[in-house]
């Protein structure tokens, strides 16, 4: 097949995980993993939801871990078997996160990391060699399961870690396995593509009465409404206040019209 090589995604930017206890969680990432917080502010124009970005790696910010909170979360606790693995079992709900792995550069670094974490008083597993990585695990705040890993260097196209009998148990034929090993390339030319109708989308967001307008606004308007300014400017700058008033003046009549037209539907 011809086409542009598929390097549209090249890494993990950040997993965003709920917290009801920022001080404990932030201290854990700082003291145990040696990470530093680089941002903590209200999320995307929200009035009461906030998130903290925690960086690792060098000064170029090679990636983040993110914690978030909104008031409704404060009534919830981790649910073993649904939102967090229990230790005896790796089962969580479909789509939920079992674990997040962080990478170190060498086996020497892996051993040093294990000793460092153990010295901090955390129970760590033995190092396992899974072929695609060598890693050990530990439990962190909110029952989160972490792994520290060295990549095994398995190349795309390599077949020796594919157990076809297990693949068949997953319902995959050999042709489907081969297709998943080499995804379709991108066309050479960029083809601007409009959104499908929101309600026909194969997967779609759940809309509440507060967010039901989102699929109906032009993307340029949404972008303008949701573009963020640094926290100091949000509260202190006259320019920011005028800008927010202008945004409300433009958006509210449109949203009211959509409501009168009966287009604001709530979905699961």
């Amino acid at each position: 097949m011809t086409g542009k090589a598929l390097n549209l995604i090249t890494g993990i930017h950040h997993p965003n995980v709920g917290t009801t206890d920022y001080p404990t969680a932030l201290n854990f990432f700082h003291e145990v993993f040696g990470m530093r917080m680089v941002a903590w502010y209200l999320m995307h124009g929200s009035k009461d939801s906030d998130h903290a970005l925690i960086a690792y790696g060098d000064e170029r910010n090679s990636g983040f871990f993110s914690l978030c909170n909104r008031p409704e979360m404060n009534k919830l606790t981790p649910v073993p078997g649904l939102t967090s693995p229990t230790g005896q079992s790796d089962t969580v709900a479909p789509g939920a996160m079992q674990s997040i792995s962080f990478h170190v550069a060498s086996e020497e670094d892996l051993n040093a990391a294990r000793a460092h974490i153990e010295a901090k008083g955390y129970s760590v597993s033995d190092i396992e060699d899974r072929g695609y990585e060598k890693s050990f695990s530990l439990k962190g705040p909110h029952e989160m399961l972490f792994r520290i890993a060295v990549d095994g260097g398995v190349r795309t196209g390599q077949r020796d870690l594919i157990d076809m009998e297990a693949a068949n148990e997953l319902g995959l034929s050999e042709a489907e396995v081969l297709a998943a090993m080499s995804p379709s390339p991108e066309p050479d030319e960029y083809i601007a593509t409009p959104n499908p109708d929101f309600y026909d989308s194969k997967y779609r967001f759940g809309l509440t009465k507060d967010t039901a307008f989102i699929p109906h606004l032009p993307i340029n308007l949404l972008n303008w409404l949701m573009t963020e300014t640094i926290p100091a400017d949000q509260s202190r700058s006259l320019k920011a206040i005028v800008s927010n008033l202008k945004k409300m003046a433009v958006a509210l009549p449109r949203i009211l019209l959509l409501k009168l037209q009966g287009k604001l539907r709530v979905t699961q």
């Binding site: 549209l8 995604i9 090249t10 890494g11 993990i12 930017h13 950040h14 997993p15 965003n16 995980v17 709920g18 917290t19 009801t20 206890d21 999320m43 995307h44 929200s46 939801s49 990636g63 993110s66 978030c68 909104r70 409704e72 979360m73 919830l76 606790t77 981790p78 649910v79 649904l82 939102t83 967090s84 969580v92 709900a93 479909p94 789509g95 939920a96 996160m97 705040p141 909110h142 029952e143 989160m144 967001f205 759940g206 809309l207 509440t208 967010t211 699961q268």
Partner: peptide, 27 residues
């Protein structure tokens, strides 16, 4: 999945502490 516990509705949706709210990949 249980909505508002293990599954968020949207990018700022509710989930239990320790659960994944969204996963961001790098382009």
């Amino acid at each position: 999945p249980v909505v508002d516990v293990s599954e968020p509705r949207d990018p700022i949706g509710v989930i239990a502490p320790g659960a994944l709210q969204h996963l961001a990949f790098t382009c």
